[in-house]
Write a protein that binds this DNA or RNA. Structure first.
Length: 904
DNA sequence: CAGGGCTGCTTACCT
DNA sequence: ACAGGTAAGCAGCCCTGA
C-alpha cells in the first residue's frame, strides 16, 4: 500500500503518513524521523556520487544532527538537505505502486451583493450558496445548496425535485457541515482554479461563519490548512495547503500538460473544447439566476463539477500526477514543478547504485549568476514557397546527447578553459554595440544568443578538432590540476592516447568508462518506455491500454522534463558545463545532419546548402526538387511523384542514421555503441510549403512519420507559429487565415486570394465593433495600477493592453456597474481601439469571459478601421508578405473608386 | 512639431 | 524554482527635417 500525503511533526519528531490500502481503506502510519547526512572521510564506508569515501551520520533528533553538521561544516556534505519527508518516502515506498486515490471534484457558487459586488477569497463577505461535489469512489454527484431568502424551503425543494442527491439547507453552516462529512473519505480535492478561488474562499468563509477550529475538517490528523503566499500573474495571492489529503488545482494541471495557450480558461470553454460539452446556458448574471431560476442555478452548479469529472475521464491528469509522484517518491503537489521531482528520481537511482548525492550548492547573494548558457541553433529560413519538402529530426535530441556523451557531474574529467571563447564573446559584444545607431562610448556590450550566431561549439573545441599546433589551451581538471598544452596535443590526449575521454562541443571532457547516474537513468527511462509502448500495442482491453499508455507517458514526461530541470541553476545537479555541452553538442549534431543530408542531394557537405530550407534545434527541412525537377519524367503522375519523394527522403534519413556513429566518434570521441544512441527519423513530406521567418512556416503535408495524411483527399496543413495558431488572433480570423493559407498552399493565384480577402473585409465591416478587438492575457495589472496611483504625475508608463484593461475597470466603476466582471491579473481580455475621445483613451479592453457587454461599453467610439487593419492587413502581410504580392492596396475596400484606378 | 526609427517590455509561440 | 531562441506589437523616447 502506498501513501497519499505525509507530514513532519517537529515537536514529536515523527513522520505521519496517510495511506490508502488496496482494499480502499485509509491507514495512518507513523515513522520516527531519520535525520541523515554524509560527509567526506577517507575511512567512510559509503560512497559518494563521485566515488569518494563518505561517512554517514544519522539521528532521530534534529538538534543532535544540526550539531554534527556544524562540526563537519567545512567538508563537502551529502544529502544533508534532502527534505525529511521525501527521505521517509524514499526509504519506505520506493517501487511501491501508486494507490487508487479517492478523488473529489468540487465547485462552489457564491452570492453577490448588489452594492458591494463580488467578494474576493481574502474577504469573503458573500455567503456560499451552493457546493457540488463528485465523489469518484462512490461515482456520485452531490449538490448542496442554500435557497435564496425570498424562497420558501418547500418551493425550493419542489424546484430541485428532479435532481438526485441534491440537498437543501437553511443555513450556510449546515451546508458546510454536510460538505465536511462528504469529503471525509476523500484523498484528493480538485476544482477549477481552486487554488486561487474555491479553497481560500471556503477556508476563509468557514473561519468567518463557523470558527477557525472548524477549518481543521478540511484536513486530517487534526491539522489546520496551512496558509501559503504565492505569486501569480505578477500579483501576490494567498491560498491554503491541506494536510493529510491533497488539493490539486485542475486548471493548473491542465496548463502544465497543455502548452498552447487558449482564448479562455473558463471551465465552460475548456470543457467544450476538450469533451464537446456545452455549458448550461442562462440569461443575465449568475446571481439573477440564483434568485429567479433556482432550478437552473442548481443545474449549472452540478454541470460544472460534472464537467470536471468528464474532463479528467478524458485527460486523466490526476492519475498521471499520482503515478509521477509515486514513481519518484515525492508528494503529489511536488509534480507541479520539475526540479524537486527530477532530483529525487536521480537520488533514488544513485541509491540503487550504492552512492549518495551531494548537497545543493547554496548560491549566496554575493555570487553573480553565471549568465545564460547558449541554446539551440535556428537556421535562417530561405523565405518563400518551396515544393516537395521533406524533414528529418533527431529523436529526443537533448536526452540522447546526454546519454551519448555520458554527461554527468561525476563523469566530468575537466574543462578546456574558454579563454578564446570568452574573449571572442567580449569583442563581438562590443563590436555589435558599436554598430548600434545610438551607441555612446561606454555603453554595455551586446549580450545574448546573437553572440553565438554561426557558432556550433566553443572556439577551443574547434581548435582541438583542427589539431592546431599554435593554439595554446589550458585544461582545468576536476581534481584541481591545470595543464597547458597546444590544441594538437589536447587532441592527441583525448582522441589518441587510449584515454576513455569524450570531448563535448563545449570543450568539456567526460569519461566514457563508467556510466553516469543521470545518463543511465535517461537510458533506463528510454528503454522502459519502449517496452511499455510495445505492451501498449499488444493490449486489447481498455484497462490494459489505459494502464500501459499512462506508464509510457510517465516515462515520456520524465525524459522531457529532465533536461529543463537539470539546466535550472537551482537544481542540485546543475552544472553550466553540462548544460552548454548539451546544447552545443546538439547544435553540432544537427548541423551534421543538415550538412550530410544536403550532401546527398547536392554533393556539398553544407548545412545551409542549396537543398536546405530551414532547421530548428533538432530538425531540418529541405527539398530535392530544384535538383531533381529536370530529371523527373514530364508525364509523371502526382501519386508517383509523392511516392518518389517519400522513398528518397526515407532513404536519406536512413543514410543519415548510418553516418551518426562515425560522426560522433570523430567529433566527440564517442565510443561506437554510444554513437548509436543518436538516431533521426523522417518526419513529414509535403508537396508545398511556405517559410516566412524563423519559427513561422506552413507545409501542406501528405505523409507524416510514414503515415499518409492525404488518403481522404482533404488537406493537412502543418502550420507553426503563424498568427492563425496564436491565441491573440480572434478565432474567426484564425479560420480566415487558415483558408487563405490553404488556398496558397494548393497553388491558388494572387487574384483569387485578393477576392477572398475582399470578401472577408466586407463581412468584417458588418460585425459589431467589439468583435474586432485583439485577445490578450493581462498580467501585473494590480502592480501597474498601484504604480500609477502612487506616481506623482498621476500617470505611469505601461503596456497598451494593461492600460486598456485599466480603462475598463475605471469606466465600470464610473458607471456604477457592479454586474460586469472586474479585470484581474491573469485575465484574458479583448483589446479594442478607440477613436479620439474626451477621456483621452486610445483603447479599452473587456474580459473574454464577460457574457454580456454593458451598454456603456457598447456606446464607446470604436476605431473600426484601425482594428480591421490590424486584423486583416497586418496579419495577411505577416502570412503572405514574403510572396511580395502587394495585397494591401489591392484589397482596400475603403479606397475610393479614384484611388483604386489612379496610376502613379 | 510631426514622423521615422530605435529601445525595452510584453505576449505567445517553437523545439 | 524545467531550458533557450524568436517574432511581433506597443509605448515612449530621441532624433531629424521641416
Amino acid at each position: 500500500m502506498s501513501y497519499v500525503d505525509a507530514i513532519h511533526d517537529k515537536s514529536a519528531e515523527r513522520i505521519h503518513v496517510v495511506e490508502r490500502s488496496p482494499a480502499g481503506e485509509r491507514i495512518f502510519k507513523e515513522y520516527p524521523t531519520n535525520y541523515v547526512m554524509y560527509y567526506e572521510d577517507s575511512k567512510g564506508k559509503h560512497r559518494s556520487l563521485y566515488g569518494t569515501p563518505v561517512k554517514k551520520f544519522s539521528s532521530r533528533k534534529q538538534a543532535e544532527w544540526e550539531k554534527e553538521k556544524r562540526i563537519h561544516g567545512k567538508k563537502r556534505l551529502f544529502e544533508a538537505d534532502i527534505p525529511i519527508v521525501f527521505r521517509c518516502l524514499s526509504e519506505n515506498y520506493l517501487k511501491v505502486d501508486a494507490p487508487k486515490l479517492h478523488t473529489c471534484f468540487f465547485d462552489i457558487e457564491v452570492d453577490f451583493d448588489p452594492s458591494r459586488g463580488f467578494s474576493p477569497p481574502s474577504d469573503p463577505f458573500n455567503p456560499v450558496t451552493a457546493v457540488s461535489l463528485y465523489l469518484d469512489w462512490l461515482d456520485q454527484l452531490v449538490c448542496l445548496a442554500v435557497p435564496p431568502k425570498h424562497m420558501t424551503y418547500e418551493t425550493a425543494q419542489e424546484a430541485i425535485a428532479e435532481f438526485p442527491d441534491t440537498m437543501l439547507f437553511r443555513t450556510e453552516k449546515e451546508l458546510f457541515d454536510a460538505f465536511f462529512s462528504l469529503i471525509e473519505d476523500a484523498d484528493v480535492l480538485s476544482g477549477w482554479n481552486s487554488e486561487g478561488y474555491d479553497i481560500p474562499y471556503m477556508v476563509n468563509r468557514v473561519t468567518r461563519v463557523m470558527s477557525k477550529d472548524d477549518t481543521r475538517r478540511f484536513c486530517l490528523l487534526g491539522q489546520y490548512p496551512k496558509k501559503r503566499k504565492y505569486e501569480r500573474f505578477g500579483k501576490e495571492e494567498e491560498t491554503f495547503d491541506l494536510v493529510g489529503r491533497i488539493h490539486l488545482d485542475y486548471l493548473q494541471l491542465y496548463k502544465k500538460y497543455n502548452y498552447e495557450s487558449r482564448h479562455s480558461y473558463k471551465l465552460d470553454a475548456i470543457g467544450e473544447m476538450e469533451v464537446g460539452e456545452k455549458k448550461t446556458e442562462y440569461e443575465g448574471s449568475l446571481d439573477q439566476l440564483y434568485n429567479k431560476d433556482f432550478k437552473k442555478f442548481i443545474e449549472y452548479n452540478r454541470q460544472d463539477t460534472l464537467l470536471l469529472k468528464k474532463l479528467d475521464n478524458k485527460l486523466q491528469f490526476l492519475e498521471l500526477a499520482n503515478q509521477l509522484a509515486h514513481e519518484n517518491t515525492v508528494l503529489l503537489p511536488t509534480v507541479m514543478g520539475s526540479v524537486a521531482m527530477i532530483e529525487m528520481a536521480v537520488m533514488n537511482e544513485a541509491h540503487e547504485r550504492g552512492v549518495v548525492v551531494p548537497n545543493k550548492i547554496r548560491s549566496n547573494l554575493n555570487t553573480v549568476s553565471e549568465g545564460q548558457a547558449a541554446g539551440a541553433y535556428v537556421m535562417n529560413p530561405k523565405k518563400g514557397l518551396h515544393e516537395w519538402i521533406g524533414s528529418i529530426d533527431i529523436n529526443s535530441l537533448y536526452p540522447s546527447t546526454i546519454r551519448a556523451l555520458n554527461m554527468a557531474p561525476e563523469t566530468i574529467v575537466g574543462q578546456v578553459r574558454q579563454t578564446l571563447t570568452n574573449k571572442y564573446m567580449e569583442e563581438r559584444g562590443l563590436e555589435l554595440a558599436k554598430k548600434k545607431p545610438r551607441y555612446k562610448e561606454g555603453d554595455a556590450p551586446v549580450e545574448g544568443p546573437v553572440l553565438w550566431e554561426g557558432l556550433f561549439s566553443s572556439l577551443e573545441y574547434t581548435a582541438i578538432q583542427n589539431q592546431e599546433r599554435g593554439t595554446m589551451l589550458t585544461i582545468d581538471y576536476e581534481d584541481g590540476r591545470e595543464e597547458e598544452m597546444s590544441a594538437a596535443q589536447a587532441w592527441k590526449m583525448i582522441y589518441d592516447s587510449n584515454n576513455p575521454y569524450i570531448l563535448s562541443a563545449n570543450g568539456t571532457i567526460f569519461r566514457s568508462d563508467q556510466e553516469g547516474v543521470i545518463p543511465g537513468l535517461l537510458s533506463k527511462w528510454y528503454s522502459d518506455r519502449k517496452v511499455m509502448q510495445k505492451k501498449l500495442r499488444e493490449s486489447t482491453t481498455k484497462t490494459d491500454i489505459d494502464y500501459w499508455d499512462k506508464r509510457q507517458l510517465v516515462r515520456k514526461i520524465l525524459l522531457n522534463s529532465a533536461y529543463g530541470a537539470l539546466l535550472n541553476e537551482h537544481c542540485r545537479f546543475y552544472d553550466k558545463r553540462i548544460g552548454q555541452s548539451t546544447t552545443l553538442t546538439g547544435r553540432s549534431i544537427t548541423k551534421h545532419m543538415s550538412a550530410f543530408t544536403n550532401e546527398i542531394m547536392t554533393g556539398v557537405y553544407d548545412h545551409t546548402g542549396d537543398s536546405m530550407i530551414y532547421g530548428d534545434t533538432d530538425s531540418c527541412y529541405f527539398s530535392a526538387w530544384p535538383m531533381l525537377k529536370d530529371d523527373l519524367p514530364a508525364d509523371m503522375s502526382l501519386e508517383d511523384k509523392k511516392q518518389t519523394f517519400i522513398d528518397l527522403y526515407e532513404s536519406m534519413s536512413d543514410q543519415c542514421n548510418v553516418s551518426f556513429p562515425g560522426f560522433m566518434e570523430k567529433a566527440f570521441h564517442c565510443p561506437r555503441d554510444k554513437g548509436l544512441i543518436i538516431k533521426g527519423g523522417r518526419e513529414v513530406c509535403g508537396d508545398r510549403g511556405l517559410f516566412i521567418t524563423k519559427k513561422r512556416y506552413a507545409i501542406n503535408i501528405y505523409d507524416a512519420e510514414n503515415k499518409r495524411t492525404d488518403t481522404n483527399g482533404a488537406m493537412k496543413v502543418k502550420a507553426m507559429g503563424l498568427d492563425l495558431k496564436r491565441a491573440d488572433t480572434p478565432a474567426y480570423v484564425q479560420d480566415f487565415l487558415m483558408e487563405v493559407l490553404e488556398m496558397t498552399l494548393s497553388g491558388k493565384q494572387r487574384d483569387e486570394i485578393i477576392e477572398k480577402i475582399k470578401e472577408f473585409k466586407i463581412i468584417l465591416g458588418k460585425q459589431d465593433s467589439w468583435t474586432k478587438g485583439s485577445p490578450k492575457g493581462v498580467n501585473k495589472l494590480t502592480s501597474y495600477t498601484m504604480l500609477e496611483k502612487n506616481s506623482k504625475t498621476g500617470r505611469a508608463n505601461m503596456p497598451g493592453h494593461v492600460r486598456a484593461a485599466m480603462n475598463w475597470n475605471t469606466l465600470k466603476r464610473v458607471h456604477g456597474d457592479n454586474y460586469s466582471m472586474e479585470i484581474m491579473d491573469g485575465f484574458k481580455v479583448v483589446v479594442c481601439k478607440l477613436k479620439s475621445n474626451a477621456m483621452g483613451y486610445t483603447s479599452i479592453a473587456y474580459p473574454t469571459d464577460q457574457l454580456r457587454l454593458p451598454e456603456w461599453f457598447r456606446d464607446l467610439p470604436f476605431d473600426d478601421n484601425l482594428m480591421e487593419s490590424t486584423l486583416v492587413d497586418e496579419k495577411i502581410s505577416n502570412l503572405l508578405g514574403v510572396l511580395k504580392w502587394d495585397l494591401r492596396a489591392n484589397t482596400d475596400t475603403n479606397s475610393t473608386f479614384d484611388e483604386l484606378f489612379s496610376f502613379g
